[in-house]
Design a protein around this nucleic acid. Structure first.
Length: 438
RNA sequence: GGAGGAGUGGCCGAGUGGUUGAAGGCAGCGGUCUUGAAAACCGCCGUACCGGGAACGGUACCAGGGGUUCGAAUCCCUUCUCCUCCGCCA
């Protein structure tokens, strides 16, 4: 969420920046400015009366005889003041509701470094690592490979849960587990992240904090409530949600920064509107495993932290020897809450193209404002520093299912077996090659 | 699921309708003292919003929401959370 005062004081630049995302936000911004003016006059009036009322009430407390005519007169006067005040309070509340509804629907401002463009055609490749694996045979995709090896089972998943699920068998399940441990060990031991194990069900307030609600409810699985509960629970679409909200409504001390967290969780996505896209295989599932990195940073450190975090994600692929590229998303292709995003795309020989395996974003203070993530700067001078909003940065490091897909496809052999990347072998009991399940 | 109890500032803890944003203590910050440290003493020490260039002034907040009242941390309703006992259970 953008700051109300900032928006009102910078209507035109905000409109111009948001326009780069492809929407016409001018009318909405004008409405916000109008309601902001209404809100302000209502507050001024309501507070003026409140002060008068407080003074009068204090005076009444000093009248000894509560049955005197003076007391009765004062009571009547205050009653009238109270009624007046309610009118302005109601005005204020209505204006604020109107503002909130509109402000919440505004996406974050794209960073100046995000290129122009409205779709992925305009994303900019900024680096490429490794080379396309050489194969003197026609590479299969992970679906054919996995099913032939007996490690991926989509038919039985349909029986259990419908489309967009998978069952992993034997060495497939082992590989998934190995990837999880490998990535977590790397981020905790080498990159200094603190591992968290979080709830997979969260309240709507957490989803509001990251920007998933109220706008993107159709992407979420909501858990039906029994009538004992007054709030709904949702399956997390990413660990970003519980981890980013971990310190919601706290004011962290300067010396606690930066916070660097990593978490493994399954992720659940409704994939509404994705009908027909990636219907085959494990690329787009209702449930998938992911290792997430989340950082809470001082504003002045967030750009550098974003670069560092992106490198941490890339290093997973490098350690696994997987060919990839990094892409800087254009303004129109970024998520709602992000101001700058790098996608990491891994090469899939079966599709002969790069596919997203990680998305690393700097959100500036957009999520922090929604979630109430603040810190108190170290007071260098004599002044006691006021709390400031943090910046949030996060990225997948990595999506485990898609990593499994990439390993299968890039390490496949002519005979249909798959070599296990060296870095992974300690995590699979020394397994060197995946061969058909008997 | 059944029966009780409780939610006050970073922490502990007073306060049951009238200068209480809230006593006192701890922690923290600044200072005096000290070779240094400790102790002692003095001062400071919540957040958000509104006005203001600022100094500063004002309003709101005692788990959340609603109500009663001229006036609520204090009374009423409701939701949530935590604790104790019983039941069930990975």
């Amino acid at each position: 969420m953008l700051d109300l005062r900032y928006v009102v004081d910078h209507l035109e630049p905000v409109r111009a920046r948001l326009a780069r995302r492809g929407g016409a936000y001018g009318p909405l911004l004008e409405e916000i400015a109008g309601f902001a003016a209404e809100r302000r006059t209502a507050i001024i009036e309501s507070e003026r009366i409140a002060r008068e009322l407080n003074d009068a009430t204090a005076a009444m407390a000093k009248i000894a005889d509560k049955k005197s005519p003076d007391f009765a007169a004062a009571r009547e006067k205050n009653r009238a003041l109270g009624d007046q005040r309610k009118v302005f309070e109601l005005q204020q509340a209505q204006a604020e509701a109107s503002i909130a509804e509109r402000l919440q629907s505004l996406p974050n401002e794209p960073d100046d470094s995000a290129p122009d463009g409205l779709d992925e055609e305009h994303n900019v490749e900024v680096k490429r690592w490794g080379t396309v694996p050489t194969m003197d045979f026609a590479p299969k995709d992970h679906y054919d490979l996995g099913v032939a090896l007996g490690i991926l089972d989509f038919e039985r998943a349909v029986k259990l849960s419908g489309p967009r699920f998978a069952v992993l068998w034997g060495q497939g399940a082992l590989l998934e587990r190995a990837l999880i441990s490998f990535m977590l060990d790397m981020h905790t031991r080498e990159h200094g992240y603190t591992e968290l194990c979080t709830p997979y069900l969260v309240k709507d307030s957490a989803l509001f904090g990251t920007g998933n609600l109220p706008k993107f409810a159709d992407q979420l699985f909501r858990i039906a409530t029994s009538d004992e509960r007054t709030y709904d629970l949702y399956l997390i679409p990413t660990a970003e949600v519980p981890v980013t909200n971990l310190h919601a409504d706290e004011i962290l001390a300067d010396e606690q920064l930066p916070r660097k967290y990593t978490a493994f969780t399954p992720c659940f996505r409704a994939e509404a509107g994705a009908a027909g896209r990636d219907t085959k295989g494990m690329i787009r599932q209702h449930q998938f495993d992911k290792i997430e990195l989340v950082r809470l940073e001082r504003p002045e450190d967030s750009d550098a932290a974003h670069e560092t975090l992106t490198r941490h994600a890339e290093q997973v692929l490098e350690r696994l020897g997987l060919h990839y590229r990094r892409v800087l998303l254009c303004a129109g292709d970024m998520g709602f809450s992000a101001k700058k995003t790098y996608d990491i795309e891994v090469w899939l020989p079966g599709q002969q193209k790069f596919r997203e395996i990680s998305s690393c974003s700097n959100f500036g203070d957009f999520q922090a404002r929604r979630a109430g993530l603040k810190y108190r700067p170290a007071d260098d001078g004599k002044g006691k520093a006021k709390p400031r909003l943090l910046h949030t940065i996060n990225g997948s490091a990595l999506a485990v299912g898609r990593t499994l897909v990439a390993v299968l496809e890039q390490y496949q052999q002519a005979d249909g077996s798959v070599i296990v990347p060296e870095a992974l072998r300690p995590y699979c009991g020394g397994l060197e090659r995946i061969t058909p399940r008997r």
